[in-house]
Amino acid sequence: MKKVLLILPAYNEEGNILNTVKQILEFRGIEDVQVDYVVINDGSTDSTEAICKKNGLNCLTLVQNLGIGGAVQTGYIYAVKGGYDIAVQFDGDGQHDINSLPQLIAPILAGKADFTVGSRFLEKKDTFRSTLMRRIGIKWLSCLIRLVSALHLADVTSGYRAANKAAIAFLARNYPMDYPEPESAVALKKAGFRIKEVQVNMFERATGKSSINFGKSIYYMIKVSLAIVCAGIQRKEKVIHADTASD
């Protein structure tokens, strides 16, 4: 029996969190796999915490807002403490389709990958709408990642990802604070983990707004590009912030 933890980072997701968890609880399940979840409430200022408490959700509330990176990392630390075999990042806003979970974790269960990334664009069949600028940005980051780490990723910003035990331990120790997805993928690749991209289904956001608006996108591109290059030239042995992190 493999233990799988779904990490649900949630910042001001009062409109979505209950439905997201409901979908997880209604999920038909996978044979020989136990699926748990934890909501990481990232110091929400709305009623996210109250909703979680009222409905008895498994919710870990951060005492202050840390941003997506700090919240997801808390989930990985939780996974280490709970002895989970696989941890899956699953957005609290209902974007990710729980029915894609079997495909996402299949390569890890089969021992063929240490870390899988759920991609919207691996096969052309999907209908995920995206602006031209966004597609150009993703293409650029994808090329940059390939250049510095020889890692082929189509959907670099995907937050629907799964990690095995060794990758969980690595991510619990090293995780970037903001816009962490592309950077952490490069760091994992550099540390010698096997990464595989898997086609998954995603939905348009149900309610609330995306964490990345137009004003932030320039900062996003510069920060992430720099982070990828820095992670790319980082030597394998040197692990970021190892001195301050522990389990």
Partner: peptide, 19 residues
């Protein structure tokens, strides 16, 4: 930067203990 990292670590530790 170092202190930001430490504050993050403290926040995570305190939050997990509280949970």
């Amino acid at each position: 930067s170092k202190q930001t990292e430490r504050i993050k670590f403290l926040t995570q530790s305190v939050s997990i203990e509280k949970y």
